[in-house]
Write a protein that binds this DNA or RNA. Structure first.
Lengths: 342, 342
DNA sequence: GATCGCGATGTTATCGGTAACTCTTCTCTG
DNA sequence: CAGAGAAGAGTTACCGATAACATCGCGATC
């Protein structure tokens, strides 16, 4: 094969296509976007040349010139956490399927508000925020008013009307359900190890747990404050487990439950004989733990897909497909929970 | 507050800054990029106006006009897997810190080669590939020659010189080390449950395991073929565990080990009394499993950061900082492994 | 004192597209 | 048969930057 013809083979632009096809560059643009009226013959010819030249529109140029938005940036905090990671997966998949390119920017715990605008490639860039924790919620607030945004949030805001561009899982009902399940097994009450709150008010999971206890007329213990990690769960309950009257612990996520189970082992408590442990999220290892973990399955991926659906609708109300539904939380009963000890 | 002055407040462009500062738009560009010589007075004046107007350069326009590359797209397969997810985190962190915006595109198992170019925002876009599995390796091969790419790969290629733009972990030595560790505990031999290979040749982990056995003059069992999930590990070893002479199992990743441990429980084998299980990756739950898992810790995040370092160097050999080093694999001994049964 | 050289800026072209407006043809009415 | 209306395609401006080239002073050299 002979050397390349030119000094540098720059890949084909819309002009090259136009020249080869013998039409104006604008006509090529029309064909690409399937917009205005172009004769069938011309369209075919242009498509042919596009294929022949291997032409791909430059998305940067399209965006710059004010074409339809085809990119999103996801703002998320720590993707090591299952919920955020799974939501991100759902968002990415939905966006990619819809032909969007997706950017990602991780929020550090202490990232400043002013920092947020810097993460966008251009003013008015479309954004999705995973706002399950404080950093996410702050980022959501810090976004300039002119950016089209959709968010996956922990909770529906109590005050004012719902923001139509937010999606959430019904953590509250799920926590209440899990609590009722434990009470139904004969436990006198249920203790709760909380994940950090994304807001100043009572988190949804904590609230659901409390309501279920109150509704059943049971004592409401002080919730234990955990972090996100197994270690924090371990530390939070270590002292509590000396008290044999504690027979049921609900955890804000599966990682906390992991730590709680280890603390139980060390305290000589048998699960589920002496102690029932229930997690939240149904992270992948849960089913294979020893004992396998009873937990609340949350459809984070579905939530992520729905969140993109909202954004898509916001960007293009005419043509965007319906926002996909996501599954309700579901209690998955496994080995870690059982009847209260006699 | 009165209504906004104009019909629509479009955010400041380089022209607005130039006009307000009383200089040409080119001078503003010079200041932004700190490039050519601009008098100190002018520079100060321009910076002042930039701050005043809250001006942020439009990165799309910068890229279009041929400015320095400040964005990367990461091609990765299933981010539900710990290795890929952690590597991605490292890449994103390093890229963001260096002022790059990062895009992400997940490769489906069967994504076509032709599909790859479509994922790039423009021809010649910088790319990082996480090529631990087949989909990743195929994507790496499918990339056009003109895209600057750096990759995190499973193994150093056997044939030809090293590709200077690839980074990897020494899986082979790590597997050999873990195998020797088990032999040192008195186990007659070690069985291996493999993760799927990214290449047609023998994967590094399998190879290291085999070499260690051979070097010690021990029998080399047929490696079991697992997938990536706990379930596949469970299925792979279920029949094997009936054989009491099997006392040590090394797993290609921690998820497989999770499945193996469950199979052992069901087979009535005690860990580590009857059976030692060693994983690979040191995924987060490992330390809190019951029993906690002996495993090989791999510095995926460091690998990801290094991979970005390579790319950065490739894009800008003059100014890019040195490529950061990453940690060697390290065997973390926990509860799941112990002396061979008498 | 005129020319040279260079620092500091301004001009103009260009990147690869989209949007709005214009210009031809036809075809359909009246 | 003339004029309106619309389909099909071309022209021109613009998006927000960067790069190459041109210009303007001004001190140094001869």
């Amino acid at each position: 094969m002979p050397a390349q013809d030119g000094p540098r083979t720059r890949s084909a632009s819309i002009w090259d296509v136009a020249r080869v096809a013998g039409v104006s560059q604008q006509t090529v643009s029309r064909v690409i976007n399937g917009k205005a009226r172009v004769s069938e013959a011309t369209r075919a010819r242009v498509l042919e040349v596009i294929a022949e030249l291997g032409y791909r529109p430059n998305r940067l140029a399209q965006a710059l010139a004010g074409g339809p938005v085809r990119s999103v940036t996801v703002l998320t905090s720590d993707t090591a956490l299952y919920g955020a990671a799974a939501t991100l997966r759902g968002m990415e998949e939905a966006a990619r399927t819809a032909g969007f390119s997706v950017g990602i920017s991780v929020l550090e715990r202490d990232s400043a508000q002013a920092d947020i605008a810097l993460r966008l490639n251009r003013p008015g860039e479309a954004v999705m925020v995973i706002a399950f924790d404080d950093a996410g919620v702050r980022a959501l607030r810090a976004l300039p008013a002119d950016v089209p945004v959709a968010a996956a949030v922990e909770r529906r805001p109590d005050d004012g009307p719902d923001d139509p561009w937010q999606a959430w899982l019904d953590d509250r009902a799920a926590a209440a359900h899990a609590t009722r399940y434990l009470l139904g097994l004969g436990h006198r009450t249920v203790h709760y190890v909380a994940i950090p709150s994304s807001t100043s008010v009572l988190p949804q999971r904590t609230q659901g747990w409390q309501e279920a206890l109150r509704a059943a007329g049971r004592p409401v213990p002080e919730p234990l404050t955990g972090g996100w990690s197994p270690r924090s769960g371990y530390l939070a309950v270590r002292s509590l487990l000396a008290d044999r009257s504690v027979t049921a612990v609900l955890c804000g996520n599966d990682d906390l439950a992991l730590g709680v189970m280890r603390a139980a082992r060390e305290a000589g408590r048998d699960i589920p004989g002496d102690l029932s442990v229930v997690g939240f999220d149904d992270s992948p290892p849960s089913a294979y733990l020893n004992p396998s973990l009873t937990t609340v399955r949350l459809d984070f991926e579905g939530l992520g897909r729905a969140c993109f659906g909202l954004l898509h609708r916001r960007l293009d109300p005419q043509n965007a497909p319906a926002v996909p539904a996501w599954s309700e939380p579901e209690l998955i009963v496994r080995e870690s929970s059982g009847p209260a000890p006699a």
